[in-house]
Design a protein around this nucleic acid. Sequence first.
DNA 1: AATCTTATCCCTATTTTTAGGGAGTTGAAA
DNA 2: TTTCAACTCCCTAAAAATAGGGATAAGATT
Lengths: 221, 221
Amino acid sequence: MENNKKIKVHIADDHQILIDGIVAVLKNEENIDVAGHSLNGRLVIDWLNENKADVLVLDINMPEVDGLEVLRYLKKNKLELPTIILSSYDDVKLVKEVLKMGADGFLAKKCAGENIVEAINSVYNGDQYFSNEVQKDLVAAAVGKTIRKKVHQDGVFSSSLTDRELEVLQLISIEMSTKEIAERLNISTSTVDTYRKNLLQKTKAKNSVGLAMYAVRNKLL
Amino acid sequence: MENNKKIKVHIADDHQILIDGIVAVLKNEENIDVAGHSLNGRLVIDWLNENKADVLVLDINMPEVDGLEVLRYLKKNKLELPTIILSSYDDVKLVKEVLKMGADGFLAKKCAGENIVEAINSVYNGDQYFSNEVQKDLVAAAVGKTIRKKVHQDGVFSSSLTDRELEVLQLISIEMSTKEIAERLNISTSTVDTYRKNLLQKTKAKNSVGLAMYAVRNKLL
DNA sequence: AATCTTATCCCTATTTTTAGGGAGTTGAAA
DNA sequence: TTTCAACTCCCTAAAAATAGGGATAAGATT
C-alpha cells in the first residue's frame, strides 16, 4: 500500500484512448502507479525533467518528437530508465533498431492489456520483455535469453543498415531514381545499384516500394 | 434501463488495448451496449452475419481485411449500418475516401474517449460526426453541414481516385508487381499498366515509390 | 441523343530496376 | 599483421516500370 513501493510508470502515446485503456488496466495493479502520461515525445522529455519514473512505456509513432528521439535523448543524457516500446507492428527489424537504441521491452499493441503488467514488472527488475510473436522471431534468429548482451557485445542485432545504405534508402524513399541518387552522392550508378541490392536483401523487401515502406515503418525518414 | 433500448455497438480495432479502453469508457454509458468486438475486418463481417449491431466503430488499419474492405462489403450488401471510422490521423483526404465509401463518422484516435460517446449517439440518430480538427478542415473546404448530400450528389468530396485505382494503389503499396496485381484482380497486365499511369498522373508521383508514399501520407492502406 | 466516367484492353519503345557474379581500397579492430 | 566491414566500381542479362498513343463497352448524367 505504501506509495514508495509502487513502480512509477510514465506512459507516452499520441492516442488518448489508448492511454485511457492502459491506465484502466493498470489501475487494478497495486504495485504500479501511473505517475504521468504524455501525448508526444517532447512532453515526455519535459516531464522527465521535472519528475521521476521507474519505467517508461513509449510509443514509437508520435507527432513532433517520436519515440526513437526520446530513446536517443535518454541515451545521450545517460538516463537509465527501463523503457518498453509500444508498437503497432511486431516487426523484427524495428525490434532490432530500438534494442540497439537502449529499449528494454517491446510490446505489440495488439497484445492484450494484461501483458503490459508483466512487461512493466519485467523491465523494472532489469529483465527484458517481448511480445509473443516478436519473441518467437527473435528465438528463430537463434538467440536465447541473453538478448541484451548479444546486442551490446557483438552487435548481432544492430541494425544491418550502414550509414551509406541508409542514405540511399532515404533518397529512394523520396522518389529518386538510381541515376539521380548517383549524381546527388557523387558516386557511380553501379555503386547505387550495389546499395539497392544490399538493401533489398537486408530488409527482405521485394522492390523499391518495399524499401520505402520499410523506411516508413522504421521511421528512417 | 431496458436492454432493447440500448444502442448495440460493435468495435473493430486490431489493438486489444484500444478496444479495452473504449469498452471501459462505454461501460459508464447506460444507453450504449458493446455487443461485440473484433480484431480484424474478417471477424467483423463474420460477426455481422450472426449478430446485429446498431453502430459500427471501425478502425482502418487492420490486418487481413481492413476497414475499407468492411465498408465495401457493407455497401455491396446494402447493409445500412451507421459506421464511425477510427483513425490514427485526421487526414482530410482519408475522410473524403471513407465518406465516399459510406462511413458516417470520423474519429481521430487522439481524441479523448468521451467523444466516442457523442459520435455513437450522433450516427445512431442519422447524423454525422467528425473529430474537431477534421471538421475544421472540412469547413475550410467550403462545406457546411450537408456533407453527406454533397458527397452523394455531386461528388465534391470524391477522391480523384476511382475505386479500382485505389485498389491497385493498395496492391502496389504491398510490394506487388504489375503481373501479380493483374492475377489478383483477374484483369490483364495492360489494364494494371493503365491504372499505374493514371495513378502517377493523378498523384503527381514520379514512380511506384511515390505512389506508395502517397498512400501512406493519405492513409489509404 | 449526346456526353462523360469508369473499367477494360492493346501496341511500341525506352528507361529503370532487379539478380547474379566479381573485385579493389581503406580504415578500424582483433 | 591479418581480418573484416564498409564503400566503391564493373559486367551481363532478365524483368519490370514508365511514357506515348489509341480503343471499346457499360452506365450514369445531362
